[in-house]
Design a protein around this nucleic acid. Sequence first.
DNA 1: TCCATATATAGATTTTTATCTATATAAAAA
DNA 2: TTTTTATATAGATAAAAATCTATATATGGA
Lengths: 313, 313
Amino acid sequence: MSLRLQAHLGTLRQMEILLAVYDSGSVSGAAETLHLTQPTISMQLKKLADVIGFPLYNIVGRKVVFTEAGLEVVKSATEILDSFARLEMSLSDMGELKSGTLRLAVVTTSKYFIPHLLGPFCERYPNVAVQLNVGNRQQIIERLKQGIDDFYVFSHPPADLNTESIEFFNNPLVAIAQENHPLVSQDGVSLAELCEAPFLMRENGSGTRLAIERFMAKQGVKLNVKMTIESNEAIKHSVMSGLGVSILSAHTLAFGGNTGLAQLNVKELPINSNWYFLWLKSKRPSAIAQAFLTHVESEGREMLLTELAKHKL
Amino acid sequence: MSLRLQAHLGTLRQMEILLAVYDSGSVSGAAETLHLTQPTISMQLKKLADVIGFPLYNIVGRKVVFTEAGLEVVKSATEILDSFARLEMSLSDMGELKSGTLRLAVVTTSKYFIPHLLGPFCERYPNVAVQLNVGNRQQIIERLKQGIDDFYVFSHPPADLNTESIEFFNNPLVAIAQENHPLVSQDGVSLAELCEAPFLMRENGSGTRLAIERFMAKQGVKLNVKMTIESNEAIKHSVMSGLGVSILSAHTLAFGGNTGLAQLNVKELPINSNWYFLWLKSKRPSAIAQAFLTHVESEGREMLLTELAKHKL
DNA sequence: TCCATATATAGATTTTTATCTATATAAAAA
DNA sequence: TTTTTATATAGATAAAAATCTATATATGGA
C-alpha cells in the first residue's frame, strides 16, 4: 500500500510523448504528430529520463536508438495508455447504456410482477445486465441503508430514511380460502366471520403483515392467528389444503397461480395498499437507473396493468 | 495513434487518491494514509469525476459506495499503478545489473578469444544476458554506424567514425604452412621466399587482409595470391591440405587448433596489430556496458593472457 | 568544407496541479 | 434534539508541468 504513496515515474504526458517518439522514430517527427515544437519533446523526455534514472535513448547518426531502459518505459507507457483507452471505451459504453448493471432489491411479494416489468426493459436495452435481489422487508431495508442497489420495491417503505419514491400501482390485499370453504359460497362475509376462522399470518417484518395488522387495529378487530408462515407460496398451499384462511396481495394470485383457491367477498376488503419504487436521495441515479425509471413510469406501468387484466381472478 | 493525442483521463495523482479511498473505504481515511487534508481528497476526486463524466461514488450514510463507473476507474487505476510498479522493479534490476543485455559485435577472427573473455563475466553477472554478433569487418562497421550494440571488437577500427576505444591486446599475424612444407624446416625464411609461395588471402573488407596488404606495400613486396577465402577456418584447412601458405592471427591458431600446421620463421614477421574494443562516443554506455568495460580492463585482459600462454604454439 | 537537418540547451511564460484553511452541509449517534 | 463525525465547497496559493522562442551543437550529405 505504501508503495502507492508515490507510485509513478514521470507524467502521463511524458509517456505520450515518449510513445510518439518511439512510433515516429524521431524527436521532430513526434513534435509534428503532437503539434508541438521540437525542443518541447527533447525537454520532456530529458525530464522523464531524470526521474527514470537512465537515459532513454541515444542519438546515433540521425536516428533515435532506444536504450534497454527506454524500451522498458515504452512497454509500460503502452500498457498504461492502453488501459486508459479501455477505460474510455467502458465509460462510453456506459454512457450509451451499451453496458452496465441495473440493481434492484424487491420484497418477496413483488417478485410476481417485477419480472413482467423487467422483460420489456431488457429487450429495449439488451446490453444492460439486471441484478434482482429478493428478500423480506427487513432484508431489503438493510440493503437500502447500505445503498447497494439502484432501486427498491416496497409496499410499505420505511419512513425514517432519506428516500425518494414513486407510487407504482395499487396492491390490493384480499382474503382467500380453500375453494370449497363454507365462507366462499356465502354472499357477503363479515369481518367478524373472517376473524373467527383460523388465520395464516406472514412473519414479523413482512410488509403484508404490517398492513394487515394496521388495518385490523383500525377496524377494532382481532384475527385468530393460527400459524405464522414465511412465504406467500407456502401460505397459498396451506390455504389450499384447508389449514386456514389468509389475506394476500391479489398479485400473488394473479401472477402466481390460484388453482384451488377462492377470494372471500368481505365488505371491508380489499385492504388498499400500494407498490412503491424507492431510492436514496443521497445516491445520484446512474444513467441506467434513470432509463429504468423512465421506462417504469411510461410503458412499464401501462404494460403491467394490461398484463394484470388478462390474469384477473 | 491519434487516440494517444489526449489519451488519458485525470492525472496519476488522482488515480492514487482514488485507490486510497477505495482501499480505506472513506475519504478521510484516504486523507490520513496519504498525509493530506480531507478537502484535498474530495476536491481531487471531484475533478476526476468531472473528466470521467460520471460520479465515482455516492456517500450513503457514512460509507462511500462506488458507482459502476467508479469501479471501472478503480480497475484501470490499479492496472496503471501496477504497471508503474513493474517498471520500477525492472529498472531497479537493471541498475543492480540483475537484468539486462550486453550486446557485442565482433569481427570473425576475434570470435576465438571473445568467449574466453565472456565466460568469467557471465559467471560474475549471472542475470545479464549477452548477445554476441559475429560478422566480417564491413558488417560490424555497419552495425557500429547504426549504434546497435554496446561494444565492437576490431583489429582495424574504421577511422572516420566518432568512436572511443581501448587497445585490448596484441594480435600478431604470423605466416603458416603445412607442417611438412619445405619452408618449415628452413632456419630463416625471407619475405621474398614467402612471396613466391602460392598465398591464400582473406576476402576484401577483412581486417586481416587490410593489415597484410599495408604491411607488404610498406615492405615493397607483392604476394603471389592464389585464392581468396572468406574464413580463417577454411584458410587453415586449405593450408593443411597443401594448397598454399597464408598469414593469420596467432590467436586463430592458439584457440582454434593447429594440428597439421606450422609457423614459418620469417624475420620481418609477425605483423604487429592490436585488438581494439570500440564504442560510439555519442552513445552513453549502459550500466552493464560499463561493468563489462571494467571487467575487460581489469581481470579480463589478465585472464586472457594467462589462457593464451597455455595454448602457446 | 559548407550546408541542411536533427537534436539539445537556456530562459521565459502560461497553465495546470496539488494543496491548504475556513466553512457549510448532511447524517448517525448520543 | 443536540452533538459528533464525515464529506463537500469556496477561495487562496505554492509548486510543477507544459510549452514557447531563440540559440547552440552535432552529423550526414553535397
